[in-house]
Design a protein around this nucleic acid. Structure first.
Lengths: 145, 145
DNA sequence: TTCCATGCAAAAACTTTGCACATCG
DNA sequence: CGATGTGCAAAGTTTTTGCATGGAA
């Protein structure tokens, strides 16, 4: 099973010349515990145990952790980016009427990735943006007259 | 060939009980002339000839035109949504390092769309989001140490 | 002790809302 | 004339920046 704490933040920080701080650990922990979340959600999670941590720090830390490769973010269309641990790199669909999100097999995009690589030299990042459309329920509903 | 002005704004407005106004025509024209643009860009375009049009009106009008099916918007990941005429409904790739955007064949997603429809009842909206990744140049560059 | 990191406050970017006046039909 | 649409101003969100204090090494 994947180790929840992959034995790495302090070392990774050290290796790149950054300092180890409680806040940085808390942000990473929060991301891993939540699975994924917006900066706001991550901040709230941290506030449950450490109300003193400023959301500015959350933003700055997420940026740092992303640069270090420990977290990544993705977009569901509208609104705030979702941060998640690097190993939680999944393809999603999102309904743009009701917002419903579902996990779908990343393999579906393999042919697309291959085409982009071969024809364009473009390296597809499967999990970065969710595929948008309408879920069953919303597709069935009459157009919003 | 696609008529640039599909003979429609006044009629479409009328049909739905809305009024025809110069601003509404200007917003639609600007979107068509630009191909696509953020609300800000659309507003600037209009200001070149009609400085008096308020950006609030642009936002409200884009929402209306989208509801009427005359324009649509899509997301490139970060930042503001891009509005475009409904007929300019194309699949794009976007590099998340440098922001480069390229048009790619929508057909590439047909198998994906079919799978989503069959397995999930999900109606994929090909043009609504871009596929993210790294362009050739950025993929070649060393990681930002 | 020496910088790096954080908290706080203010600003910036983007979008929405409320209201009075203007305009379409 | 009556209802809808617009401009203006203000407020709401979300994210970024500047700076002095605090903490890691």
């Amino acid at each position: 099973m994947p180790t929840p704490t992959p034995a790495g933040l302090p070392e990774t920080l050290r290796a790149s010349g950054y300092r180890r701080t409680p806040q940085r650990q808390m942000v990473l922990d929060a991301v891993e515990e939540l699975g994924q979340g917006t900066p706001e959600e991550i901040s709230e999670r941290i506030h449950q145990t450490s109300p003193g941590v400023n959301i500015t720090t959350v933003y700055r830390t997420l940026e740092l952790l992303e640069q270090l490769g420990l977290v990544r973010h993705r977009h569901f269309g509208h609104g705030a980016p979702m941060y998640h641990a690097s190993d939680y790199d999944t393809l999603h669909s999102v309904c743009h009427r009701c917002g419903q999100v579902a996990v779908i097999p990343g393999k579906l995009l393999e042919p697309v990735a291959r085409w982009l690589a071969d024809e364009r030299g473009f390296v597809l990042d499967t999990g970065h943006i969710a595929l948008a459309g309408l879920c069953t329920k919303c597709a069935a509903e009459p157009p919003p007259d």
